[in-house]
């Protein structure tokens, strides 16, 4: 087991390194003039020169590449023309010259928001989605099943930006049931936290719940037709035991796997949800960084999102090996 985890982690690190290299290439080597692109508004020749110097772009590309990666592990100093160097402590993803802070401190602010949205949303979508799917599989062909199928099809066919705007128009501006979302920390004001996040949770959860309902329904149907379930029934085990202990456990395995990756992916930033509800999470920062040309931030969010995805992959691989007895590790 340990060997397996080590091997997977090693591959994951390799993957992250490859992603950071590609990201570096896209931002530093692909644009015609990266400093000018990063300079953004109010740019003049002197500012461009300063940025070039700041980001070390006056150095050859391989050197920049090494510096960039060294920063991730040991931090780095950004040189300044005739001034004290700007230190960026490890893990130095980048330094945002527009906001004058290491990108890690931006991520420190943004991540709790994204995590609040995703974790809350995930609780809803997993509960609603899986129970809906499981029950409709057990009551196959009934009105309940057909309603559940209709719900999941609607959810799966509705773009989230349409659904989110409808939610806002209905609950905030139409019925005045909820205030416009203003994020507050969970520990500061738990009620305010729920109030601010309830709409984003539902927006995110509706789309995902539909997918999980479809997925768990088909998984459950699949499992119920397996021979061992028939055997379990034949030997006289109660319906409850068969469904919960045997069928459910087998059916849920692949769903756990996928949920892990879904949550890992969303932790990198729920771009559309955050944008529409004005919540300053990772996705909000990434989108905001585009017109502001804060390329260090965009780059960092790409890396952080990749980190969560890769980490989720490793965890899920290990979980899978633990949960599913059929998987042999070698």
């Amino acid at each position: 087991m340990l060997r397996f985890i080590l091997k997977r982690s090693l591959i994951a690190i390799l993957t992250l390194w490859a992603i950071s290299s590609v990201t570096f290439f896209v931002f530093f080597a692909l644009p015609a003039n990266p400093a000018e692109t990063m300079c953004g508004k109010n740019c003049d020749v002197r500012t461009i020169a300063a940025i070039q110097k700041n980001l070390g772009m006056d150095k050859p590309l391989p050197k920049q590449y090494l510096d960039y990666h060294a920063g991730l592990f040991v931090g780095r100093d950004f040189e300044r023309q005739g001034r004290e160097a700007q230190h960026c402590p490890a893990p130095c993803l980048a330094y945002s010259f527009r906001t004058n802070e290491p990108v890690t401190s931006i991520i420190g602010r943004a991540w709790p928001v994204t995590a609040s949205i995703v974790v809350g949303g995930a609780v809803i979508w997993l509960t609603v989605g899986i129970s809906l799917g499981m029950f409709s599989a057990l009551r196959r062909g009934t009105v309940f099943d057909k309603t559940a199928i209709a719900f999941s099809l609607v959810g799966a066919s509705m773009p989230i930006y349409v659904f989110a705007i409808l939610l806002l128009a209905t609950f905030v501006f139409g019925l005045h049931l909820l205030p416009y979302p203003h994020f507050v920390g969970l520990l500061e004001d738990p009620v305010g936290w729920v109030k601010a996040l309830i709409l984003p949770w539902f927006a995110l959860a509706f789309i995902f719940a539909a997918q999980y309902a479809r997925l768990s329904r088909s998984q459950m149907l699949e499992t119920l037709s397996e021979d061992y379930i028939r055997t379990a029934r034949a030997i006289g085990l109660s319906k409850r035991t068969v469904h919960l202990k045997h069928a459910f456990r087998a059916a849920i395995t692949p769903i756990v796997t996928i949920a892990g990756i879904d949550i890992g992916g969303a932790l990198g930033g729920a771009v559309i949800t955050e944008t529409i509800f004005g919540l300053q999470g990772m996705g909000w920062y990434a989108v905001r960084a585009i017109p502001n040309l804060n390329f260090p931030v965009i780059m960092a969010t790409v890396l952080v999102a990749a980190f969560f995805l890769v980490a989720a992959n490793v965890i899920v691989d290990c979980l899978y090996a633990v949960i599913d007895p059929r998987v042999k590790l070698n």
């Binding site: 501006f173 416009y180 203003h182 944008t275 529409i276 919540l279 300053q280 909000w284």
Partner: peptide
């Protein structure tokens, strides 16, 4: 400056909810 969409910000002002 967190109001990403000016149309939504305008709606908040039309609405004149206590917070705004």
């Amino acid at each position: 400056w967190s109001g990403t969409d000016p149309a939504i910000v305008s709606k908040r002002f039309v609405d004149d909810a206590p917070a705004d």
